[in-house]
Structure formats: C-alpha cells, structure tokens
C-alpha cells in the first residue's frame, strides 16, 4: 500500500469510538511510514482518557525507528492519570517539514482535548480519519456508527475526511469480519461523503491476499497487546 496516501496532508488526526483500534493503527502507521523513509515524522499521543494501552507505551520502539513521540509531560509516565500534556506537543505541529500522526482518546470525550490546539486546525494542513470496528458493540450498525462519528465531529468542529476499516476480533478475526467492516464503511462513505482510506488486517493472523481485490489492505500489528492476554 502506498504509505503516502495517509499523508496527503501534513497532519493525520486519528479519532474514533473507544476500542476501535486507533492506537494500534497509529503506531502501525508510524512504524511503516518510518520504514518507508517518511521523515521527519512525529506521533502525538493525546489520549488522556484511557489509563492503559496508550501509544506513549511504544515510545521507545517508535523512537528507535526515528519517530518523535510527544504527549505526556512526565516523561511518558504510564501511570499518569491527570490530563497533563507537554508544551513540546506544539513543536511538530509548528514544524512544517514534519509529518504528524495525532492519536486521540476514544469517543468525543477523548477527542475534546484537541480543541486546545485549535489554532493549528484552522487551515488546510490536516485530515481527520475515523477508525471503525464493526465488531464493536456500539458501532455495529450504520445509525450507531453515525451517532459516534457525529459526536466526535461536533466536538472537534471538524468533518471527518476518511474512514479506516479496522474491523477485527483480535486473534479470532476472519476475512468475513473485514468484509463486514467494509460494508459498514461503504454505506457510511456513500451516505456522508467520506473516503475509505484502508482496510486493516491483523498481521500474522490474516493473510491479506485472501481479501477481496477491491480492498486496500493495511497490516496492523499488536504493539500494545501482550501475548499472554490470548491464553
């Protein structure tokens, strides 16, 4: 997949319903983009609503690939529970040469924090992508998914550009799950004018060659999930 398509604009904001897989997607995108030579590249972890499983936990891995990670003021402290952010977050936002992936927290509550950086989102320098998992209980249907997307769009005052089909059931994912997610995304894209950016598949679990040839497969790793969780 052409990694450049994720960076048609300098900043990609990744938002979505709780547990839709934003962080695993954002980390996977950053790792692949770095591997393909996109530099300078930064991940901004703006998740201040989730106590565990945040992209700052992958900071060392990302930095090893040359990706700048910004987020928590307290040195990516995994137990920081307060919504504190580093002033350094503005650095990649202001560096016009730097590609940026912003990983927001879940739902409109998690998205809200972006409002304090509003001045960076007045122009045309960014895209908003919504990650969707059709196996998530509260985004299984078109009306449910629209409700969640609208809550985020209204909170941010930004209309989403992209949908990212990230429909999976972790290690139980089948190609049918991804196709189900694609159907949901297609209906949403048609009714509301979004562009589908990619169809994610869990790396090592699904062979992308089994997916429909019209799909745009993008491999997502399990960077945050420990292996014993699947015992």
């Amino acid at each position: 997949m052409d990694i450049q398509k994720f960076f048609k604009k300098r900043i990609l904001i990744v938002a979505g319903h709780y547990g839709s897989g934003k962080t695993e997607f954002a980390v996977s995108l950053a790792m692949q983009a770095a591997a393909e030579g996109i530099s300078p590249l930064a991940v901004i972890d703006l998740d201040v609503v989730n106590p565990y499983f945040r992209s700052r936990e992958c900071a060392a891995k990302l930095k090893a690939e040359g990706v700048e990670v910004q987020g928590s003021f307290f040195g990516h402290d995994v137990t920081a529970e307060i919504p504190e952010l580093s002033a350094n977050i503005r650095r990649p936002l202001e560096d016009e040469s730097c590609r940026v992936i912003i990983d927001l927290g879940g739902n409109e509550a998690g998205a809200r924090i972006l409002k304090q950086f509003d001045k960076y989102f007045q122009g045309d320098d960014f895209n908003l992508a919504i990650v969707l998992n059709a196996n998530r209980y509260e985004t299984r249907t078109v009306p449910d998914a629209i409700e969640q997307i609208e809550l985020i769009e209204n909170e941010l005052g930004i209309k989403a550009d992209y949908l990212i089909n990230n429909t999976h059931l972790l290690r139980e994912t089948t190609a049918d799950d991804i196709a189900k997610g694609r159907r949901l995304c297609s209906e949403l894209a048609e009714s509301r004018g979004y562009e589908i950016l990619c169809d994610c598949y869990p790396q090592g679990i699904i062979d992308p060659s089994v997916l429909d040839k019209d799909f745009m497969p993008f491999g997502v790793g399990m960077y945050l999930r420990q292996s014993w969780l699947d015992k």
Binding site: G19, N135, Y137, E138, L170, E172
Partner: peptide, 14 residues
C-alpha cells in the same frame, strides 16, 4: 454473535 468489547463495557452490559 461475538462482539469486541472492552472489559468495563462488557461488565456493565452483562
């Protein structure tokens, strides 16, 4: 059919 849920949501729903 199976759905993907976060623990806390699943506890509440159950």
């Amino acid at each position: 059919e199976k759905v993907l849920m976060k623990g806390n949501e699943a506890f509440a729903e159950a």
